[in-house]
């Protein structure tokens, strides 16, 4: 009985340690990163709507490629890696969006300056 108890005790300890070890080493998720994938897709769509395809083609393509890879990893149940790649795809898309907005604003500045120049010329011609 005592022997049995000792055996049980040591088994419990082993399981405990293994559990702690497992938790420390990998923290491997068991959940698919559905939220991250959805979030990344949303940001990509947002970037598309502000003209990322035209103004930041490199960045938006990288985001798409990474999202695709994340989906593949998710299908392979490699959830951790899938999540990380999805997050990286999200920052790519964010950058694409910021770049598109910035480029467009700079174009607007340029056009406005041009229109002022033309306006000034016209006024000078009139006088």
């Amino acid at each position: 009985m005592i022997l049995f108890n000792r055996m049980l005790e040591s088994k419990i300890i082993v399981v405990l340690y293994l559990g702690i070890g497992l938790a420390l080493t990998s923290c491997a998720s068991t959940k698919p990163p559905l939220q991250e994938l959805a979030q990344t897709e949303a940001v990509i769509n947002q970037a598309d709507q502000v003209g990322a395809e035209e103004y930041a083609p490199l960045e938006i393509r990288q985001a798409r490629k990474k999202l695709q890879r994340a989906r593949e990893l998710e299908a392979e149940e490699k959830y951790d890696e899938a999540k990380r790649i999805a997050v990286r795809a999200e920052v790519d898309a964010e950058l694409a969006e910021a770049k598109a907005l910035s480029e467009k604003a700079q174009n607007a500045v340029h056009q406005l300056r041009e229109s002022i120049r033309i306006l000034k010329e016209e006024i000078e011609r009139k006088q």
Binding site: R88, V91, L95, A98, S102, V109
Partner: peptide, 21 residues
Amino acid sequence: AYIAKQKVAIARETAELNAAQ
């Protein structure tokens, strides 16, 4: 590191956007 790098780039573009606005 990649996320940090991209965030810096985003900060740069955002600053340019604001300056342009």
